[in-house]
Design a protein around this nucleic acid. Structure first.
Lengths: 199, 199
DNA sequence: AGGGTGGGAGAACGATAGTTCTCGTGTGTT
DNA sequence: AACACACGAGAACTATCGTTCTCCCACCCT
């Protein structure tokens, strides 16, 4: 424990590793990326890498955990900054999606991708995907409630968002965010028009 | 070309191989399944396997091609059998989804899963996913047009369906099909109410 | 009946990946 | 100044996988 081993530097190295891992895993898929690629991209030696994360599985878990937190934080910050009535905040979710889809390296939802790749063989990955989607739904449900809209609307809006996420990835255009936003507005208006039944 | 080599038997063996490959690839992910597992599951020797499909990539392509055809055929047959006005056929799409999601081994859309796993490294897989989703959208667009609904509705209904597909996979329940169906009906009603603008 | 051919089982081969080990070097401590 | 430790670079080890090869048996035709 001489030099470079302060807790702070350790944490900074962890971040560097996660930065590299995230870009590689998200961009190419988890299985397609070896530990050596993470080492090269991060500039952290294999030895230190395995000190920080005792196995690739642990690194993958950390990648998903951080991505979950960052995505939801980013969404919340974006929505919080959106002006207008609560209903407008719900619509802002889809604007956020549009910006996300427009990023040049957009390749869909890391959790859905990981689920398809590893969900069947690695229960932790399946659990991470479930947790992430549940957290997203909870957040949406909060917005829906704040807008005084029926609770059942949240699940429907989530479906639109999820559909937009995969459709944008596969088709390669951010347009699905717009279509989802328009559909969301129709659903909200309809729910407003008749508060009780139409679900 | 003696025995067992008639074109018919060849085709039957191909189907056996594809049956095994489909179950394994869909259930565990493509990368997680080796050629040896396909050989064991199908009972077809490695030599014959490589005669029928010259590489794993070729087998994967055949798997996706057949799955594409079967899914869309199954959907079309289901919808065609649905009684009622054209609008009811659109709703039937979501009933079909519900049945699909209820299958015990349901694990989401093979194309989305393959895209997440291999789309970045294997352009053929990305293309297959795109083609499949486009075909699905085209089919939906046909139903929407037959129901005299605005064309833009098709994309929105597709988003609901896609969202339901991944949400049902990750959450493990078929409920998203119901929620999507309800939302679809609201969208259709709204489009009917005001034929031109609300898109 | 006998030989040649097709086919099956599984070994073999080369590549890749996850993980660990070795070696050399530089640095802080005594 | 010398030692001890930590670290980086990369080899090494093991397992797995895609693909091919070898060996052998059984069958069909003459």
């Amino acid at each position: 424990m001489r030099q470079g081993s302060t807790t702070l530097e350790l944490e900074a190295t962890r971040e560097r590793v996660l930065d590299a891992a995230e870009e590689l895993y998200y961009g190419r898929g988890v299985q397609a990326v070896g530990m050596d690629a993470v080492r090269t991209a991060s500039g952290v030696s294999l030895k230190r890498l395995y000190q920080l994360y005792p196995s690739k599985a642990a690194l993958v878990e950390a990648y998903l955990r951080r991505r979950d937190a960052r995505l939801l934080d980013g969404l919340a910050r974006y929505v919080e900054a959106a002006p207008g009535p609560p209903e407008e905040r719900v619509a802002a979710v889809f604007d956020w999606l549009y910006e996300w889809f427009s990023e040049p390296d957009y390749r869909g939802c890391a959790f859905i991708n990981s689920y398809g790749e590893l969900g069947a063989t690695t229960p932790e990955v399946a659990a991470a995907a479930r947790a992430h989607k549940e957290a997203f739904q909870r957040y949406l449900a909060g917005l829906v409630e704040a807008a005084d809209l029926p609770a059942a609307l949240a699940a429907q809006l989530a479906l639109l968002a999820e559909g937009a996420i995969t459709t944008a990835a596969i088709s390669g255009t951010p347009e699905p965010a717009r279509q989802a936003r328009a559909a969301a507005r129709v659903l909200m208006d309809a729910a407003r028009g008749a508060v009780g039944p139409p679900l």
